[in-house]
Simulated scan of single mutants.
Amino acid sequence: MADTPESSHKVHDDEDSDSDLKAGGRAGNGRIAVFAILSLLLLAGIITLVLYLVYRPSHPHFTVVSVAIVSLSNSSSPFNTITASVQPTLVIRNPNSRASIRYDRIEMYVMYRNAPVTSPVLLPPLIQDKDTSVAISPVLGGPAVPVSPDVVEGLAVDRSFGVVPLRLIAVGRIRYNPGPFRGRWSSLYVRCNMLVAARTGVSGPVPLLANSDCSVD
């Protein structure tokens, strides 16, 4: 028996309904997949934030606890120079209870009136465990350093009064290792102002006349 127009129209309607159902099913599955991906990303973000808050490291603390003047002299003939050899003792504290710290390529030198008066000294690498302190006493000095006439005259005046403002600078790189993670290397800049009682002709340990906590960037 031949199909009637009504039965042929019904077959087409059934096929269209099946196509619509399949298309709707695919759209629904796509929405579910997108929702699942967004949920996973949100969960990963929350976990990352929690880990960051738990393991977020703090800067190390540097403090100058003593200073010894091995030598400190100025000359204006034939050139304006300063010859200095200084031995500061610094205590470095790692305040982090969940992160160790690694120091590398640390160079340290002394400045007077914004002029370097010692050559940079490269310190050995240092690994500092969690919540610990370590003391270092590098000897910073070397040959005469050329400076301006104002710096030479200023040092002569300050030593006559027995009060010399020095500045200790340390530059290098630092890396935090929080918990099971390993951080990236970042730059380190430490500045310590040291007001010392140093008169002309005096050498050896000298008193610190002010608090010598350091700024750390």
Rank of each mutant, 00 (worst) to 15 (best):
M1Q: 09
A2D: 13
A2P: 12
P5A: 08
P5L: 00
D13T: 11
D14S: 10
S17N: 11
D20I: 10
L21R: 12
L21I: 12
G24A: 14
R31L: 15
V34R: 13
L40Q: 04
L40P: 00
L40E: 04
L41S: 12
L41M: 14
L42I: 13
L43T: 15
T48A: 15
L49F: 06
L51R: 06
Y55I: 02
Y55A: 02
R56H: 14
P57N: 05
S58Q: 15
H61W: 03
V64C: 15
A68D: 12
V70T: 11
S71C: 01
S73A: 12
P78Q: 05
N80C: 05
A84N: 00
V86M: 06
L90A: 11
N94P: 04
S97T: 14
R98E: 12
S100H: 03
Y103G: 02
Y103W: 07
I106E: 10
I106M: 15
I106R: 03
E107K: 12
M108K: 06
V121N: 04
L122I: 08
L122W: 01
D129N: 13
D131V: 02
P138Y: 03
P138F: 01
P143A: 14
A144M: 10
P149A: 07
V152P: 08
L155N: 07
V164Y: 09
P165K: 09
L166H: 06
V171K: 15
R175G: 04
P178V: 06
P180A: 06
G183T: 09
R184D: 09
W185D: 03
W185G: 01
S187T: 13
S187H: 05
L188M: 10
N193Y: 11
L195V: 08
V196Y: 09
V196M: 03
T200G: 09
S203R: 12
G204Y: 01
P205F: 02
C214V: 02
S215D: 13
V216Y: 03
D217V: 12
